[in-house]
Design a protein around this nucleic acid. Structure first.
Length: 591
DNA sequence: GCCGTTTTCGGCCCGACTGTTTTCAGTCG
């Protein structure tokens, strides 16, 4: 019995092992496509299997449906069992070594019998790899270095988006100073706002590529790893890798688009281009020669279509513009084709109030007044003061007595600042799903964020019940950092999100997009599930100091990835409207 | 292995860079 992620893993393993055997690359890709289709499944896998409707899913045909059914119901597949029997167990980890693909792994295994990282390392150290046909001393040294990196990366592979953006900014400024350079832009997963980033992808428009790569090499701490005519790779002092691609100014738009990805989005887009009689690459959009033309005929220089911008590229393919944050092949191309893609995705600039702020009253490091003045200086119209509640003892949670005294300070500070301060709390969701303030207190507050901070190792059933109860509370509450994940440190807790969202939709409340660089929670797919239920959203900073207020941009990127529109975000409202929208006390109905 | 207004076969995205070659295969993104 495997869930959809387990089945997807098994399909990828089949694909990798087939690749190792030199199987048709398109067949190999079909397994990857199938795995992706499963992971993105909106419907329950069990139901699709039971109703024999798997082949209705694009990318899944008869053959994959059979294997998926077997893997889902029995946890096994004959194909996978046979493949595993033919290969030593450690062979797949060799594919993780940079510059080692299926062909080379197969060659090394055949010649030297290596079947694991330790084997391969030993073979490099005593020089046996260099003796294999197709390999040499340099390759052997690269493999050895690659093994080191695989091991290092196993601990800490990707960096947080916030860090990648912080590193990109001064580097971009540095490169823009290179002679003959018209533009340097950030691309890659950082531009798409992915929560973690493997490397920085930069693109540039320049008539003098070598000046630009020299400039990259001269960046303090940078080390050039590869340097070609149009592509340069470097490692920054921090260890972060940078890929810089250079094109002539007229090719910048297609290069930027290419390097922004995602790969899945590109695959679909290129297929679409081909259907319309074009071929798309980083070097532009070209009309295909008429079918039947000898493939060795040199390309027709007039076949190139002028593409001035990414917008123009999508337009040429009959699509509305797809912003970078949406380019994940998660339905955006279908929506861009039929005009249903949202055009008013929220921007950080749309936000008028800072939500979810801590102060020295609990575990914040800045005073209430410092936070208020900093938010005011950023142009904000209001700030919610949401310090921790009584059971958050570890975080200096407020007692009722201290909460009342905090209100007095809020009133005092309010007289000295223009920005409106809203009295709130970040209430703990207790083990049984109750909030840790009585309703009588909650109803006197102006904002309630409700979050889980303890007992996170419950099973899925318990956690779902707990959160369903919390989200069903009669007060209006904002579900704080919904899944409790800490990127690279702690997994999200197991919970049936959709049931929790159903409860929230039936009650009164909103979901938060938490901009803490380690959280970025709820994540995009769950945001889309919230939108589908009409649940409003707040972009929040969860700030514990003045610098934390700048997390707003990360919250906005994450919200955009979740297809969040401006009108769905409560803190794009003015202070009075926002306060009315989130007021915890239930509206007084007719008698 | 999947797919179909080119529809049950014959396609399937495309180019840069490296190393070991001596004309190209493999890998990567």
């Amino acid at each position: 019995m495997l869930d959809k992620f387990g089945v997807a893993r098994a399909l990828r393993e089949i694909g990798s092992l087939l690749e190792l055997e030199g199987e048709n690359p398109f067949k190999v890709r079909a397994y990857e496509t199938g795995a992706r289709a499963l992971e993105g499944l909106a419907e329950d896998l069990g139901r699709l299997v039971a109703e024999k409707r798997l082949t209705e899913v694009p990318g899944i045909g008869e053959a994959l449906a059979g294997k998926i059914t077997s893997l889902h119901t029995t946890g096994r597949s004959d194909t996978l069992d046979k493949l595993r029997a033919r290969h030593p167990p450690g062979i797949l980890e060799l594919l993780q070594v940079p510059d080692l693909g299926p062909r080379k792994v197969a060659a090394l295994n055949a010649a030297l019998g290596v079947c694991g990282l330790a084997d391969l390392e030993a073979a490099c150290r005593d020089g046996r790899v260099a003796g294999v046909k197709g390999f040499g001393e340099r390759t052997q040294a690269r493999i050895l270095a690659g093994i080191e990196r695989v091991r290092a990366q196993a601990a800490d592979r990707r960096v947080l988006l916030a860090r990648a953006l912080d590193e990109a900014e001064p580097l971009l400024a540095h490169l823009r100073g290179a002679p003959g350079t018209a533009a340097v832009e950030l691309a890659g997963s950082a531009r798409r706002g992915r929560e973690t980033v493997g490397d920085l992808d930069l693109v540039a428009a320049s008539r003098d590529p070598s000046a630009l790569s020299a400039r990259l090499g001269a960046y303090p701490g940078a080390e050039l790893l590869a340097r070609g005519e149009t592509k340069t790779t470097a490692r920054l002092g921090s260890g972060l890798q940078v890929d810089l691609r250079v094109a002539a100014p007229e090719d910048l738009a297609t290069l930027l688009h290419h390097m922004t990805g995602s790969k899945a989005h590109h695959l679909r887009l290129r297929g679409l281009a081909r259907e319309l009689g074009y071929t798309l690459s980083e070097w532009g959009l070209h009309r295909l020669p008429p079918s039947g033309t000898d493939p060795d005929t040199p390309p027709d220089p007039t076949a190139k279509v002028v593409v001035e911008s990414e917008e123009a590229l999508y337009r040429a393919l009959g699509l509305s513009y797809v912003p970078p944050e949406l380019r994940e092949d998660a339905g955006e191309l279908e929506a861009a084709g039929d005009g249903s893609l949202p055009v008013d995705l929220v921007l950080a600039e749309d936000v008028r109030g800072m939500v979810h702020c801590h102060t020295t009253w609990s575990d914040g490091r800045a005073s209430l007044e410092e936070m208020a003045r900093a938010a005011q200086a950023m142009g904000m119209e209001y700030l919610t003061v949401t310090d921790h509640s009584p059971s958050a003892g570890y975080a200096g949670g407020l007692s009722l007595d201290r909460l009342r005294r905090q209100w007095e300070e809020v009133d005092r500070v309010q007289e000295r600042v223009r920005i409106r301060l809203l009295k709130g709390t970040e209430a703990d969701i207790l083990e049984d799903g109750a909030l840790d303030w009585p309703d009588t207190v909650l109803e006197q507050l102006e904002v309630v964020v409700a979050s889980v901070h303890s007992r996170m190792r419950m099973d899925e059933e318990q956690m779902t019940r707990r959160l369903v109860r919390a989200m069903s509370a009669p007060v209006f509450k904002i579900w704080g950092h919904g899944m409790g994940r800490l990127l690279g440190e702690r997994e999200a807790y197991p919970v049936r999100v959709e049931e929790v969202l159903d409860a929230l939709a039936a009650s009164r409340g909103a979901v938060e997009v938490n901009g803490d660089p380690r959280r970025l929670d709820l994540e995009p797919r769950h945001l889309r599930a919230a939108h589908a239920r009409g649940i409003p959203v707040v972009l929040s900073v969860d700030a514990h100091d003045v610098a934390g207020l700048s997390c707003l941009r990360l919250a906005a990127l994450t919200a955009r990835r979740g297809w969040t529109r401006r009108g769905q975000v409560l803190n794009t409202l003015g202070a009075t409207e926002f306060a009315a929208a989130v007021r915890p006390s239930p509206p007084t109905g007719p008698p």
